[in-house]
Write a protein that binds this DNA or RNA. Structure first.
Lengths: 119, 119
DNA sequence: CTTCGATATGTATCACAGGACATATCGATA
DNA sequence: TATCGATATGTCCTGTGATACATATCGAAG
């Protein structure tokens, strides 16, 4: 697991409709699935239960046309999960959004930080 | 109450430290307090309990130096609440962040919207 | 000195999201 | 056909946070 910087940052939650939304949780899971090739392994990596991970995958596959995660049953080195082309696309787009948004609000982020009291 | 556009948008949650964060909920309350001059009225306007509103105010006053909301006890047209200069400042900065962030990710927002399935 | 409307704060209850646990099924391999 | 590890899905239970309710205090006004 890569450790995130403990810097002030803006987290992004994209509200696409009154039903579909995308935030750091789902996107992180998406990334972990891409890395591990398994919903279960991705869940373990992020410290979430398999059920929660699977629920998030289900939601994403429901909301996005064609689905973002493809799954194959069966154990050993055969079964598993992988990102669909759409899944890789969404991941890439979201990361780009995140980066751009953070860049564009850097100055305001500093201003707010300066207004904090003693921790 | 002004009706928000039902357009895809990016909501912002600013994480300033491991203790202090600022999201749409607190900022909306801040704005409503500025408009109504009362925590109770702001809470009613946003459909939240007085206790919840007051807890959020308490958290903001704890996290930000000097506090964001000043209060005066006493009823009738004497008592009430108002934004401190810092409070008005935070509100303004956050709204600016929101606007900038949304502008800067417009293209990606459209791309994601186009990938949704049928609602 | 009572009333009114607001802040300020505590307690008890309750809904619900989430986790723990249990199973079913699948596909390859041996 | 037994085993293994993964997806897939259901049920029960608990912890937590919100809500409802209660109360205290304040300050002006009448």
């Amino acid at each position: 697991m890569q450790e995130e910087h403990k810097m002030p940052r803006a987290r992004l939650r994209v509200v696409l409709s009154d039903k579909a939304a995308l935030g750091p949780g789902k996107v992180g899971l998406l990334e972990a699935i891409g890395e591990t090739g398994s919903i279960a392994a991705a869940g373990r990596k992020l410290g979430m239960s398999y059920k929660r991970a699977w629920n998030l995958v289900e939601a994403m596959n429901r909301d996005f046309a064609g689905g973002l995660v493809g799954t194959t049953r069966g154990g050993r080195d055969f079964g598993g999960a992988e990102l669909t082309p759409a899944g890789r696309n969404v991941l890439e787009i979201y990361r780009a959004m995140e980066a751009r948004a953070n860049e564009s609000v850097q100055s305001e982020l500093q201003l707010l930080s300066a207004m904090l009291g003693e921790p």
